[in-house]
């Protein structure tokens, strides 16, 4: 990607060239995923013949990861602010959530969402949505601590200076604290995202026993028991 960055017009600002490079990289990744079946089909048995399935599986993984990742960031932000809040009940709820999620295996959480939630909630979730929820809740707890670390890493004097200048708490966070805390939190957040990519494979172990669900995405991959799935084996 450095090459792309270097070949863009010099007259553009650094920020613009950086943004365009990221956009090109994302576009390249999407195109690669879309056409993944082609290079896969050149590979030897057993991958070659089932290339389409493997490509679909990769796509499913990416979908789960991106969806759970984005929601996980939002959950992480909420839990981090909750834990840093001056309001005790908010702190208790956030602390409890982070403690429970980080203290139990992801597999158990996935089983809970797939097999226990349908009985607890009035709404039936599809396989895909259940997986996303379980994964997002999990990564959200880890993200919360990474984000909290970033916020706490910013020197208290920054807040004091900003508030002394008359900036509101929201303005202080947006213009002064967030940019600095982002740099500290980013490595941990990327770590969590990379783990999420691998952990998404556990979603194959959850399968709703009843109902087709509204969402048919990844249905041929989610669900350990393929014997009763008439669509197993078909692309």
């Amino acid at each position: 990607m450095k090459e792309a960055f270097a070949f863009l017009p010099r007259s553009w600002s650094r920020e613009r060239r950086s943004a365009v490079t990221i956009a090109i990289a994302l576009l390249g990744a999407v195109v690669f995923l879309w056409l993944l079946a082609i290079p896969l089909s050149w590979m030897p048995d057993p991958i070659g013949p089932a290339a389409a399935q493997f490509a679909a599986g990769a796509l499913c993984t990416v979908e789960l990861t991106v969806a759970a990742g984005l929601i996980g960031i939002v959950i992480g932000l909420l839990a981090a602010f909750g834990k840093l809040s001056k309001v005790p009940p908010l702190r208790w709820v956030s602390n409890f959530y982070i403690w429970v999620i980080r203290g139990t295996p992801l597999l158990v959480q996935i089983y809970f969402v797939f097999f226990a939630l349908p009985d607890l909630l009035p709404v039936q979730l599809s396989d895909f949505n259940s997986a996303v929820i379980a994964l997002a809740m999990n990564v959200g707890a880890y993200n919360a601590e990474a984000i909290r670390a970033g916020i706490l890493a910013v020197h208290k004097g920054q807040t004091e200076a900003a508030r002394s200048l008359g900036l509101s708490p929201l303005q202080t966070f947006r213009d002064v604290i967030f940019p600095q805390s982002f740099r500290v939190a980013l490595p941990s957040l990327v770590n969590n995202f990379v783990s999420l990519l691998k952990d998404s494979s556990l979603a194959t172990l959850g399968k709703l026993s009843t109902g087709p669900g509204v969402d048919y995405r990844c249905r041929h991959l989610l669900g350990a028991n393929h014997a009763d799935d008439p669509n197993f084996g078909r692309a």
């Binding site: 004097g157 920054q158 004091e160 200076a161 900003a162 213009d175």
Partner: peptide
């Protein structure tokens, strides 16, 4: 705070 400005020992520039 809009009427009172403050300068700190450790500068606290952004």
């Amino acid at each position: 705070r809009r009427e009172v400005g403050m300068v700190f020992q450790s500068f606290n520039l952004f």
